[in-house]
């Protein structure tokens, strides 16, 4: 059952802006197996959302996918025509966006927006489609589903809207869900409801998920494997437990240390100094070196390559942390 569903190799998505070339995604590789949740984490500007959009080729100019392969179930999505891609978008691969306020169309009823998905991707007749929509709304925990079909998005709260968006994503029986910060706009109690719902629906349906988030706590509760991004590159990837417990890359270590813990309260948090550099002005060498406490002259000379460190962990660092140090 552990076969690869999605394999991304050497993906490069660049934006040709007036201010210069922005290498938002610069040579990213990772894979997603069937039934697995993979978390993409990093701070703003890491390129995690752009990867999600690149998979469905939802990149508008001045952005362009410059290189790489996105192999989904044996077929390279980058070589597909726009028409072929329409069957994939929303069908084989569905997307859940961050903002439940703007990802639904305000002038159509919930029912019509759900129906659209089934019309496009199935050949069911009207009553059958309606029945399926109702069942799906019930599955995501919306009561009185039948009457809710005729409601408009503004009649729903934020959490309910996100449930609807998830229902739409699951409707056509997608095998891969890309969820881009699905709970960032929600309150914690609603967040935990939505995360549990996604987890259950995905495992029941045997689908896989790419979870894009800035929140390491959410990733550690949801994901089987984690990919940590910094300045458009993968700096570390591996099984969630290994990455959280003993990260090999100093950036991951720094991110984890920055989170205030409820277990041990120190007077000061350990912080990563400085800020994310301007991605247009990255020289050669490691892009994290200026904020890194382990940086050596070599780091300015040569960009580290992603290489196995231990167990399941790969890291892009000349001087990775030992398991005992991390």
């Amino acid at each position: 059952m552990n076969e690869t569903l999605l394999d991304i190799r050497g993906l490069k998505t660049h934006f040709h802006t007036f201010g210069g070339l922005v290498k938002a995604v610069d040579g990213v590789s990772f894979d997603v197996k069937r039934g697995e949740v993979v978390g993409l984490v990093g701070e703003s500007g890491g390129g995690k959302s752009v990867i999600g959009f690149s998979i469905l080729r939802l990149i508008d100019p001045p952005g362009r996918i410059e290189a790489g392969e996105i192999v989904f179930d044996g077929e390279d999505l980058i070589r597909k025509t726009e028409d072929e891609l329409r069957a994939v978008r929303g069908g084989e691969i569905a997307m859940v966006f961050q903002d439940p306020m703007t990802s639904l169309n305000p002038v159509y009823t919930i029912g019509r927006q759900m129906d659209e998905m089934l019309k496009l991707h199935t050949d069911l007749d009207e009553p059958a489609r309606r029945a399926r929509c109702i069942r799906m709304l019930e599955d995501v925990g919306i009561s009185e589903a039948e009457s809710r079909l005729d409601a408009y998005p503004h009649q729903f709260s934020g959490g309910m809207r996100q449930r609807v968006v998830i229902a739409i994503a699951l409707l056509a029986g997608s095998r891969l869900i890309i969820a881009d910060e699905p709970t960032t706009a929600l309150d914690v109690t609603v967040q935990s409801q939505i995360l549990k719902l996604m987890r259950r629906q995905i495992s029941e349906r045997g689908a896989a998920m790419i979870l894009v988030t800035h929140d390491l706590a959410v990733v550690s509760e949801m994901a089987d494997r984690v990919v940590v991004l910094y300045c458009g590159k993968v700096v570390e990837r591996g099984r969630t437990e290994d990455v959280i417990a003993h990260p090999a890359h100093p950036y991951t270590r720094g991110l984890l240390d920055s989170i205030p813990r409820i277990t041990d309260r120190q007077h000061r948090l350990r912080q990563i100094p400085g800020t994310v550099p301007d991605i247009r002005k990255l020289g050669k060498g490691c892009s994290f070196r200026e904020r890194c406490f382990r940086a050596q002259p070599l780091c300015a000379e040569q960009a580290p390559k992603l290489a196995p460190v231990r167990h399941s962990l790969d890291a892009a660092c000349h001087f990775p942390l030992e398991e005992s140090e991390a």
Partner: peptide
């Protein structure tokens, strides 16, 4: 972002 959040919290303390 979390790394910046830690810097600001430290400064406030």
């Amino acid at each position: 972002d979390v790394s910046i959040q830690a810097q600001i919290l430290n400064l406030m303390m």
